[in-house]
Amino acid sequence: MIKIEDLSFSYGNYEVLKGISFKMEEGKIYGLLGENGVGKTTLLTLIAGLKAPQIGSILVDGKKPYDRQPSFLENIFYLPDVVAPVRYKAIDFAKDRGKFWSKFSLDRFNQIMQLLENDPQRRMDKMSLGQLKKTYISFALACNCKYLIMDEPTNGLDIPSKAQFRKALTKFTSEDSTILISTHQVRDLENIIDPIIILDKQDVLLNASIQEITEKLYFDYSTEVVPDALYAEMIPGGAIQVRVNEEGLESKVNIEALFNAVHLHKDVVKNMFNKK
């Protein structure tokens, strides 16, 4: 379990995260959403142990990430947005690095590379950005860590690759893994992320599962105007309107509309989902 309490972090005078608190439970695929610059990457690097919290604490299975103890590092893999090309063939890189994560499997790596249509014999510094990203994604999934953190994994992937990524993500992660994916390409990961965390400047606006969201909010796709809609938008084929779900009806969550609704009515939504 990842527990974040009262976390604050600033770059110099610029305060990026302030008093952030939330928990992440095991076995789920969390989506971390937020506008650009709101601190998603900062938060991820803090959880990974690349930075130290200035105020507050982060505990991953009771350990502080910044200590970077091997017993912590072995259970986590951080995949950054921009990955470094190295002078190795993909397969050699995987073999060499894989030794450090006890659950790594070279077979899995090859399987995933194949699924992503990527050649393991190619040298990584001779790959395109997309191929390089796919190599790291394959490695990350092949490590089968308890915690997998991905920052914008679909960035740099072409459209077919995004679908392959979704497949690989669901196929090669187990119920024991907790995955945290930060993205602003919501549509790439629409049906995969559950629960959803929405981060705003210095605040967590939402941390709820899809089921909880549909219980509290109703997504109306008809063209009849909804009074008191939290958010309304014309989309191809009709409209999408978000309102409070008083009747307990079921609907399909539209994540982009959710995002906008939450941003337009921050306090209302926060109160709705505030759990004790």
Partner: peptide, 17 residues
């Protein structure tokens, strides 16, 4: 659950439901 989730590109929780 996992296999169907993987085929459809959908979170296994959803398939579970």
């Amino acid at each position: 659950v996992r296999d169907l989730g993987s085929d459809l590109g959908v979170n296994p929780n959803t398939v579970m439901r």
